[in-house]
Simulated assay, not measured.
Amino acid sequence: MLDWAAEHRGLPYRTPCHDRWLLDGLADGAPPQEREHNSRFVVASRREKYALLSRMALRAQKLRTTTCRFEASELHAMKQAATAHLPYGWISTSDALTAHLWHLLGRLRARSAASVERLGVLVDFSSYLKEIPENYWGNTITCTELRLPVGEMQDCSLGKTARLIRESTSENTAANALDEIAYLREQRLAGRERKVMPRMLYRAYTNMLQVNDRAKLPFYDLDFGSGTPFRCELPHVPIPWAAQIMPTPEKEGSREVHLSLPKAAADALVAEPSWQAHLHKYA
């Protein structure tokens, strides 16, 4: 997008690269058996697909998007608190924030201690496939999932949870990415691409928090000739318990989090002081 913006303004730019065939060529090195099954995608029947889409359309009317802002100092304190309870290894600010959101929304759901909470994090695998140009755009999103019993998650420190998230994200390797590319290419060649659905989408209506961290994308650097945006507003997400992490115009390390929640949960989070205090406990 930055390259397209530079082209639009008559400035030097790199040729934007979003060639799907570039990815397909990488699939030749994947083991053949990986083209028949994938743990993150499923080929749904027409009935299953439209049942899911209908459910999304109906449930979307019962959702509300609420936006909360975390100042840079608040995020720094959050990461410091997580690191203080970390037995080993490194975590990012995103790991700490994701762990905090998972703890908070897990409590907000108030499920039994024996229940299992799932966390689904969207991941861009282009950074660890060296065959992809640095300015490649699109088609490189996968996900990682983490599961914890409610009772265990309540007893788990912020640092330990953040470390589990980091370890889960690190499991996305180049070999795994090639497996997914091979699987999706085979489905497309067989004419089944319209039936391929992410498995994570089916779990969105049960016990999963989905997180999409877009904080490093240059939303506030884009300039097509009329100046950079003063505010980026995301469209409504028709999936419950979904969090989208965004940068802020100030570019000083603060973050905005857009939460798609059932209306009762959103009202409680916004209106009740106890939930607001827990949301900003590191402020």
Rank of each mutant, 00 (worst) to 15 (best):
G138V: 11
R118K: 14
D3H: 12
S45N: 02
N135A: 10
R214W: 12
E117C: 11
A264D: 05
S115R: 10
R20N: 01
A82T: 15
D3K: 06
E36C: 03
L148I: 10
L119A: 09
S170Q: 13
G151P: 09
H100L: 11
N135R: 09
P218S: 11
N139E: 08
S92C: 11
A264V: 12
V270Q: 02
T206C: 13
H8F: 13
S54M: 03
R46K: 05
V121H: 05
R147M: 13
A162Y: 05
E145T: 15
L259N: 00
H258D: 01
F219I: 08
Q276K: 11
L119V: 12
E71F: 01
A30D: 00
C143V: 11
M246W: 01
S168L: 04
R109T: 12
S112V: 14
Y136F: 14
N207H: 11
E272C: 07
H85I: 04
W21F: 09
L122N: 12
P273T: 06
A271H: 06
Q61F: 04
D223G: 05
T169H: 04
L234A: 01
V150A: 15
G159V: 11
A204S: 15
E152S: 09
E186A: 14
E131N: 09
Y136S: 13
V211T: 06
H280T: 07
S73Y: 00
H103Y: 08
N207Q: 11
H280S: 07
E152W: 08
M200G: 12
E7D: 14
W4M: 15
T228M: 08
R47I: 04
R147K: 13
S274W: 05
S157C: 12
D267M: 04
G89N: 09
A264L: 07
A271N: 10
Q80M: 10
A283N: 05
Y183M: 05
R188L: 07
S92Y: 07
K195C: 10
E256N: 01
N172Q: 12
E250P: 00
L146K: 14
H258T: 01
V116G: 04
I245T: 00
D28V: 10
M200Y: 06
P247S: 03
L52Y: 03
N38E: 03
Y136M: 10
A27K: 06
E152F: 06
R107T: 09
I181C: 02
R107K: 11
T161C: 15
T66C: 10
H280F: 08
L146A: 11
S274C: 07
M78N: 06
E117D: 12
L122H: 11
H236I: 03
N139I: 07
L119N: 13
S226W: 12
Q154V: 15
V196Q: 06
C143A: 12
E7N: 12
Y220R: 06
L158R: 02
E250L: 01
D223V: 08
H18F: 08
V237K: 04
V257F: 01
P273W: 00
E71G: 14
